[in-house]
Amino acid sequence: MMGLLSFSLAVSGLSGIAAAMPKHQRDLFGRTTEPGRARASRVAGWLLLAGSLIAALSFWPVSVGLAGWTGLVGAASFVVALCLTYRPRALLPGAAVALAASLCGWAVQGWIS
């Protein structure tokens, strides 16, 4: 579950970073956004990415976690890029749903055990 959480955090983080790039804003929103909002989504993106690393390190032993997280982020960037190409409008809602679902899953798992 923690692995899934780390992955959806990485996808959300990278989506946030992509949403800060004018090139992708047209795909995501149909227009470019004002600089303030772009900066906010960039910051949020990096924070989510940091959260993804924390989740990975709590899931795996530290050295293993660093290696695994590198791979997770690579796979996540691939997902984000393909989504931006083929389903740009679905990227941000999709990332939010995935993140919410894995957060719920994590909470439920923690509550059960």
Binding site: G3, W60, S63, V64, A67, G68, G71, L72, G74, A75, F78
Partner: peptide
């Protein structure tokens, strides 16, 4: 060597990429 199922899957994806 250290890879469990998730990291092994990531290794496969990375190798294929």
């Amino acid at each position: 060597i250290f890879a469990g199922p998730i990291i092994r899957l990531l290794y496969l994806i990375c190798g294929a990429s």
